[in-house]
Design a protein around this nucleic acid. Sequence first.
DNA 1: CGATCGCTTCGGCAGCGAGCGAAGCGTTCG
DNA 2: CGAACGCTTCGCTCGCTGCCGAAGCGATCG
Lengths: 206, 206
Amino acid sequence: MLADPTRAAIVLALMDGRSRVAKKLALDAGVTPQTATAHLRKLVAANILACEAHGRFKHFRIARAEVAHAVEALSELDVVSGRTLPLAAREVRFARCCYDHLAGRLGVAITERLPVFGGSVLAELGIHFDALEALRRPLSRCCIDWTERRPHIAGSLGAALLRTYKDKRWLVPVEESRKLVVTPRGRTMFVERLGLDDALFADHHS
Amino acid sequence: MLADPTRAAIVLALMDGRSRVAKKLALDAGVTPQTATAHLRKLVAANILACEAHGRFKHFRIARAEVAHAVEALSELDVVSGRTLPLAAREVRFARCCYDHLAGRLGVAITERLPVFGGSVLAELGIHFDALEALRRPLSRCCIDWTERRPHIAGSLGAALLRTYKDKRWLVPVEESRKLVVTPRGRTMFVERLGLDDALFADHHS
DNA sequence: CGATCGCTTCGGCAGCGAGCGAAGCGTTCG
DNA sequence: CGAACGCTTCGCTCGCTGCCGAAGCGATCG
């Protein structure tokens, strides 16, 4: 299903998490609209893409996180030479939302510190481990970041962390994008409370 | 590459981490040896499988962890109905090596406790975070367990943990398999030191 | 040293499916 | 209301590739 070059191009074009109309996807993939229609039908039927009709336009997007994970994992083994994630998906490298949790260099860095600072720091942030454990959702779902090629924490814990960062205004979301900006206060806090290296933020002053 | 049914069957048959000879793979996939040869050639060329010649036999195995990750991620989105991991790969559900780290229900359970018990417990086990950090290898590579569909910790930290369990004889490897057996002492220690639920071990007394 | 066996190469066949042109349908404009 | 536009359906072609039969090569074994 993802093996066909055209379908791969379509899915990769959507890997930045935003949605596009059919015609744009057809042009990007280098095929005619009829051909794109056939592929999009299959991709939606396979629950890989989701479709939303808007007037006479149809907007497509990645249907679920599992798809993104699979595409990332596939792109890690560059079997199909040259089929790599497009530049658009690499733009927001430093900090961005990945569905409901934090990704990018910042997300990876925090994940790597997690085993060190442990539960007490989480408690300081107002995240109570036991409350999360009660949720059905896997506690620490994993998500391999496709720019850093390293894991960052997802799951209910990852979602709780991102929610906390936003509430405390350490991070603020950018409109119409998945990008996140680090506030000066956030930078200080990430360094002091989570022990991150200040140099990490050096060339990313918001 | 992994989209072809025959190649998928071959790779899935090898997903238990062991190696097989070409003829067995051909029979499992339901094709003649000539056909299997062609597929195996491609899979080796694509660096998906590794091949080791042994007399007049050729043994094939999964080439690298990225391949296993990709296959796992793909099997999470059951796009291709019925193409799921074979029973053989599901046998050793509780505890097994996944290349160099611990996988299975036990690996997942420990991973979920990691953010709670933090660095001090690691130090008690004789694992020093700073020493690991110096290594080139990503500290906490992630690996989505294909039986539990949840992450367990890999990377240099995962490898160090498994080494420690073996050294302390909490776990002992089973010959000719990737299975690991929990010793009675190990069971006690996992519960006391890492805070795992004793019930987890209930129906897995070695 | 011949027989067997595992793997490989070659050639040809056959089926799947991606692709496009032409035509059709519904929506949105001027 | 008619034109433009986006998406869809239909029918067809054509190239790719998986598959096997036949034959060949090298290693092993009696």
